[in-house]
Computed example of a mutant assay.
Amino acid sequence: MEKNHKIRSLSDILDIKKLMNVDKPIETANGLPNQCYTSKEYLEYERDRIFCDKWTVIGVGNSIPNPGDAKPYNLLGIPLMIVRDKDLKIRVFHNVCSHRGFKLLDKPCTLKNVIRCPYHSWSYDFKGNLLATPHIGGLNIHNSDKFNKNQSNLKEVRSKIWMDIIFVNINANEIDFEDYIKPLEDRWSRFINHDDQKLLVHSNDYGSFDLTVKCNWKFAIENYCESYHLPTIHPELNKVSNINDHYHIQGLPNRFAGQGSEKYEQPVKGNKKFDTFNNWEKKSLKNSEYIALFPNVMIGLHIDHFYVFWLEPIGINKTKEHMQMYYIGEKSANGEELKDLRKENARFWKDVMLEDISAIEGMQEGRGSPTYNGGNFSPVMDQPTHQFHKWVANSLI
């Protein structure tokens, strides 16, 4: 019999002492060890301890706007399925038939009345209840006293929608989402409230783009958290919103980090501007904030628009980045008179994200060095990035 190579613990993959060094004060801490960016065995461990244990983003509600809309999602080998039911509620299920384990959904679609398995036609409603079991008792006998349908419903995943972002907690062991998101909502209460959140509308014409990058997902978060790289990676942006105009954001208890700017200028075309949030405090009209909500979503909040930039890990050194843009009200989001302004705003953000690719892919290539010890941090400039490293390390340990 072939020897079992199953990983027994994290210490089989990397040096735990190096991982513990991450949690030291920033002046003496190291970053995460190389294996956290290069080891496929580590990625398997990370999938369970971070992506399954935590509130993880797998998409946005706008991607399935109508009843019956459904799409599959693969979380590092775990097949999931996102469905909007007839009551317009978004539900997430394990994308597998309870009969013989066949994958139910292969591509995005609009279902009519049921989720039907292509293998033996077992069918489920949009709430996951098993409805039909053709020929289960023999030819043309579709029910059986020996089989209880209620015990074979689809397995629903714990999920929550916030600002149209779809969060899941696959292992159902994280704190309630309301408690999880409260520190960020408290911080942003001076900008927006729950009524303002309801005003957000996705832009259908210039509201999304995807980028595939050749690096580990964590590099995108690390880079997003800090403004230290503005002068070198974003020279044009730095002219408008200088590094000196930025401030650090560290959201305790250690669930998010990022940066803010005090020099945001609303996009203008002629005399046209986007509508703005109603409750934004007057003394902060030029503030914008860029939050990485751990593990895998980056959010940009401005007085006149909001974006969701979420990460889909494909492999240890491959990530898909998904950008979704929202505005305040239908006129700003989809009105014809502001179409050119939306186009320009989307182009601006795509250019910024494209500029970051050289940085995050360069860090991935650098992790091939056996002498690299995880790196050091600037005690002044790298505090939010160090916070993310600590969050990962503590989640693993």
Rank of each mutant, 00 (worst) to 15 (best):
G300Q: 13
G300I: 07
G300D: 09
G300N: 11
G300R: 04
G300H: 10
L301N: 12
L301H: 12
L301A: 11
L301C: 09
L301D: 12
L301K: 05
L301Q: 10
H302F: 15
H302Y: 15
H302I: 04
H302M: 13
H302W: 13
I303G: 06
I303F: 06
I303Q: 14
I303R: 14
D304R: 07
D304I: 06
D304F: 07
D304W: 13
H305G: 07
H305Y: 15
H305E: 09
H305A: 01
H305W: 15
F306V: 08
F306N: 02
F306K: 05
F306T: 09
F306W: 14
F306Q: 07
Y307T: 12
Y307K: 03
Y307I: 11
Y307H: 13
Y307P: 00
Y307A: 03
Y307R: 08
Y307F: 15
V308T: 13
V308Y: 01
V308C: 12
F309P: 03
F309V: 05
F309E: 10
F309I: 05
F309Y: 13
F309C: 10
F309W: 10
F309S: 11
W310H: 07
W310T: 03
W310S: 02
L311R: 07
L311H: 04
L311W: 11
L311K: 02
E312P: 03
E312K: 11
E312M: 04
E312F: 07
E312I: 04
E312V: 07
E312T: 12
P313A: 02
P313L: 04
P313K: 00
P313Y: 03
I314W: 01
I314Y: 02
G315H: 14
G315M: 12
G315S: 15
G315F: 13
G315Y: 14
G315K: 15
I316Q: 07
I316M: 11
I316S: 05
I316G: 02
I316D: 04
N317A: 12
N317H: 12
N317Y: 08
N317M: 05
N317F: 07
N317P: 02
K318H: 02
K318D: 05
K318G: 00
T319C: 08
T319V: 09
T319N: 01
T319I: 12
T319A: 01
T319Q: 03
K320G: 00
K320D: 02
K320H: 06
K320R: 14
E321F: 11
E321L: 15
E321I: 14
E321W: 09
H322E: 03
H322D: 05
H322V: 06
H322L: 08
M323Q: 01
M323A: 07
M323P: 00
M323F: 15
Q324Y: 13
Q324H: 14
Q324K: 14
Q324T: 01
Q324D: 15
M325L: 14
M325G: 00
M325F: 14
M325H: 04
M325K: 03
M325P: 01
Y326R: 05
Y326Q: 04
Y326M: 10
Y326K: 08
Y326W: 15
Y327K: 03
Y327V: 06
Y327T: 00
Y327M: 08
Y327R: 04
Y327H: 09
Y327C: 02
I328V: 13
I328Q: 01
I328P: 02
I328L: 03
I328S: 01
G329N: 05
G329E: 07
G329P: 09
G329C: 11
G329F: 10
G329L: 11
G329Q: 08
G329A: 08
G329D: 11
